[in-house]
Design a protein around this nucleic acid. Structure first.
Length: 839
RNA sequence: GCGGGAGUGGUGGAAUGGCAGACACGAUUGACUUAAAAUCAAUUGGAGCAAUCCGUGCGGGUUCGACUCCCGCCUUCCGCACCA
């Protein structure tokens, strides 16, 4: 008889048992060991094949939230998996450290942007270390430090030398209240300033651009990459290639002077249908061709268009508006004169800023014609019915055959017809075939302080002069005063602005704009290959050792920004002879995002959840598994009150894995039952197949459920036959479980690996090899259907032939009952799976 | 408007055209406990006493057989959006 006190004592000693799973201690212990043994550093000279596992680096916003953890855990699981497949995995991390939030913190709270950023990095790095990732910290890059941005400046100079950087006037977002330029992200969807709510205006400023448009066609070529279809499609749409023609019209101004105005059109086959001509409000000819009688109305219209936000102006719901210039243009194909109008639906930034109006066959032109009472002339007619221009309610697009077009009448609506027209205008010398892109040149100037200074000076005698390489880096001053007056605070620092011209030695001013932060992220993956190089941006041999990136992981929101810029950079550097390849990222994967209240979890958007408390309570392994168990990695997850409940499931699972190993320690001697051992081996090898496949294609949630099922069946084996403990098959099973789980839960598996008598780290072991012979089923369950409905399930020996299986099925009483004495018309047989009897 | 995803129990989610709901969460019950937590065991899509029937956003179709393929819708998320 045990007393209550004794029981209680047993319980409390049980709870302090040192064989209990205590993630906190285990995780700290192993993280220290891993760091000391340097096992996460990828050596350049390692003979194993390389695997460059890259994740989009974070912005150091202040603290690491659960969304970061989700992202980085998935990447780390994949990297660890590849390492266990025998690769020399390089998995670096760094910080994209220039950008607006630091500057806003400086303005609002008076902290120095640099200090704010570096302390955030410090904090995030230490938070990140608790997840036990294989980040190669020796390769860390921080883009706001001079030893990095020196080379960003150097790359700018290289692009400038190659003729890929130029300076031009361009409109920027201007807040009249704050007296400052805003980034596009700071302009809200309704066109107001995110800080003060004032309506944002456009201003023309001299800006630096990169000629990304000259790479448009190269960027449309995806032959060398294995990317998600949708990402390539987004880039294709963004680049927006359209084939067509440039056609020259002749405007006669009020002074009688003639000026050639080209238009771009994808439909030169509708040239006979032109009934008016349109100019964008910003078009340089507007003032010149407007007659005195129209001047006042035109000036008002242009001023209004300029003051409108892109959002207001580009709404397709908006009614068509416009003003007649009073002038006429000559259609080169038939010599007809048509009126020239100005309208805001023609954009200065696309094509030539001038458009030929073909209302019969373009919906926008049709609406414009109806609003302004302009004529509509059909140059295509449907093949099966006749229509009249007066009765049309919408434009006729891509239908019928050519009419009212002289010798072209009767041609079908086709690419061939378009080409026929292009040949004609080329022969006449009034135009030529042309390809146009939606893509614009990349504007990299920012009237901001916290960014890489543009290494250029302005000299009165020599004009724009590049800072020589030997004078790099152009250091960004740390102490500045912020004044909300629309210019970079750098302009108020004479010690920064005033310099001497590198060419003539005379007085010169430095460029005070800084670079778009996308510049920093367009080459960081190269710097990781040689992060500590003080002599060069990167060593060619080292970059060749690691590039291209084998696996790149990041959010889909970067499809048309960062991913396009980085490809452009790589191609441009390749063409300058600075790289041996021209595609940076071989494989791409977009992880989903953790959302709260439907929106991406991020500090700038409000609510975030910190992982620290969860890690403290359940351990990093449990949090890692939990996040990966939420669903497919590319789907992300909604974070709400119920989400965290799922953590207890994986936490229990890890405890069960732990206890499974402890139970074997206290179990008696093995009792060998060859049939049971065979069964254990079968389950083990089926699991290897499943989990390895899943880990290989990012199905991390099902990899985990496979391991849970495996663990559950091991418990069942042990419950049925306690003698299985410590049999060779059992040991193989436990070893397999630990190896397969290691990428997901690195700490507990390392600890148990040691406990089960292994030496050396589990993480550099190879993944267990799948042996198909051991995974073969001996007995299979055949599903029996009658007319497609399941009526019975029959167990048969796996090798049984078709006829024997059918005979067994037909002998089933349940099947007989379902068949109701009818004769089988047809019997479908799927080997090892199913028999369907059709009666 | 165009392009691309996604719609499955109370919840997160599984399912090479072949047993819908694996694996978990939650819930209910039981064991252990003075009690709770933890753990273990059982049940858990709906209806029905049952045999059985009904169920993967909606409507059609292909097929012996459809969550899966095809056509037409609806809802929702993402990207682009007056691009000539």
């Amino acid at each position: 008889m045990t007393t209550e006190i004794e029981k209680s004592a047993a319980r409390s000693s049980d709870s302090s048992d040192n064989r209990r799973y205590t993630p906190g201690d285990i995780e700290k212990k192993w993280q220290k060991v891993w760091e000391e043994t340097g096992q996460n550093h990828a050596d350049d000279n390692d003979p194993r094949p390389k695997f460059y596992n890259l994740v989009m680096f974070p912005y150091p916003s202040g603290d690491l939230h659960i969304g970061h953890w989700y992202n980085f855990t998935g990447v780390d699981v994949f990297g660890r998996f590849q390492r266990m497949n025998g690769y020399n995995v390089m998995q670096p991390l760094g910080f994209d450290a220039f950008g607006l939030p630091a500057e806003n913190a400086a303005i609002k709270r008076g902290v120095q942007a640099r200090k704010w950023t570096l302390s955030n990095i410090e904090k995030m790095r230490s938070q990140l270390k608790t997840m036990g990732g294989i980040w190669d910290w020796q390769r860390e890059v921080v883009t706001c430090l001079p030893d990095y941005y020196k080379w960003t400046q150097w790359l700018f100079l290289k692009l400038y030398e190659a003729g890929l950087a130029y300076r031009a006037k361009a409109p920027v977002n201007w807040c009249p209240n704050d007296q400052t330029v805003l980034a596009n992200e700071q302009v809200l969807a309704d066109g107001t300033c995110e800080r003060c709510g004032a309506v944002v205006e456009k201003r023309e400023l001299e800006q630096w651009f990169f000629k990304i448009t000259s790479y448009a066609d190269r960027l449309l070529d995806f032959k060398e990459v294995d990317w998600p279809e949708r990402t390539m499609l987004m880039q294709k749409n963004w680049i927006g290639r359209s084939e067509g023609a440039r056609v020259n019209f002749m405007i006669t101004g009020p002074d009688g002077q003639e000026t050639t105005v080209p238009v771009f059109t994808t439909r030169p086959d509708t040239l006979f249908g032109v009934t008016f001509f349109l100019l964008a409000p910003e078009h340089p000819l507007v003032e010149k061709v407007t007659t005195p009688a129209q001047q006042a109305e035109m000036a008002a219209y242009v001023a209004k268009a300029r003051s409108e936000t892109d959002f207001e102006r580009q709404s397709s719901e908006k009614k068509k508006t416009g003003v007649f210039t009073g002038s006429y243009v000559t259609n080169p194909i038939n010599g007809e004169k048509v009126p020239v109008w100005v309208t805001d639906y023609v954009l200065m930034g696309y094509g030539t800023g001038a458009v030929m109006g073909v209302p019969a066959h373009d919906q926008r032109d049709f609406e414009f014609a109806r609003t302004m009472g302009l004529p509509v002339r059909l140059v295509y007619e449907p093949d099966d019915r006749s229509i009249s221009a007066d009765e049309m309610t919408q434009a006729l697009v891509h239908e019928g055959h050519v009419v009212n077009s002289d010798q072209f009448n009767g041609l079908p609506d086709s690419q061939e017809t378009v080409k026929t027209f292009i040949r004609f205008i080329e022969e006449k010398g009034v135009g030529k075939a042309e390809i146009n892109y939606r893509l614009r040149d990349w504007l990299i100037s920012r009237q901001r302080y916290w960014g890489t200074p543009i290494p250029m000076v302005f000299c009165e005698t020599d004009g724009i002069v590049a800072v020589p390489e030997s004078q790099l880096p152009v250091i960004l001053p740390e102490e500045v005063n912020f004044r909300p007056d629309g210019v970079s605070p750098l302009q108020y620092l004479p010690e920064f602005v005033d310099t001497t011209c590198p060419k003539c030695g005379g007085p010169a001013r430095r460029e005070t704009d800084t670079m778009d932060t996308f510049m920093c992220s367009s080459w960081y993956f190269l710097r990781y290959c040689d992060a500590q190089d003080a002599e060069a941006a990167y060593d060619r041999a080292k970059v060749n050792r690691w590039m291209p990136v084998d696996q790149y992981t990041g959010g889909p929101e970067h499809a048309t920004m960062h991913l396009l810029y980085a490809r452009f950079f790589t191609k441009a550097l390749h063409d300058m002879g600075l790289l041996d390849f021209d595609e940076p990222f071989r494989k791409l994967f977009h992880q989903g995002m953790i959302r709260s209240e439907g929106k991406k979890m991020s500090k700038s958007r409000g609510k975030t959840v910190a992982p620290d408390a969860l890690v403290e309570q359940f351990g990093a392994d449990a949090v890692r598994c939990f996040l990966m168990f939420l669903g497919p990695f590319d789907q992300g997850a909604e974070w709400n009150d119920k989400t965290e409940q799922l953590l207890s499931g994986v936490s229990r699972f890890l405890n069960r894995v732990w206890n499974l190993v402890q139970n074997a320690e206290t179990a008696g001697p093995p009792v060998v039952d060859s049939a049971v051992e065979k069964e254990i081996r079968r389950v083990t090898h089926k699991t290897i197949k499943r989990v390895v496949d899943d880990l290989g294609h990012w199905a991390l949630n099902t990899a985990l459920s496979g391991l849970m099922e495996f663990t559950n069946s091991l418990y069942e084996f042990a419950a049925k036959q306690p003698g299985v403990y410590n049999t060779p098959a059992w040991k193989e099973a436990i070893e397999t479980l630990l190896l397969l789980l290691a990428p997901l839960a690195p700490h507990i598996t390392e600890e148990l690996w040691q406990q089960t008598g292994h030496t050396g780290t589990i993480h550099t072991q190879r993944m267990p090899a799948f042996d198909p012979a051991l995974a073969v089923d001996e007995v299979v369950t055949i599903v029996v259907q009658v007319n497609g409905k399941v009526r019975d399930k029959i167990e048969v020996a796996a090798g049984l032939g078709e006829e024997e299986v059918k005979a067994t099925v037909l002998a089933s009483p349940k099947v007989a009952a379902a068949m109701e004495d009818k004769h089988p018309k047809k019997v479908i047989y799927v080997a090892g799976k199913l028999v369907n009897i059709v009666v």
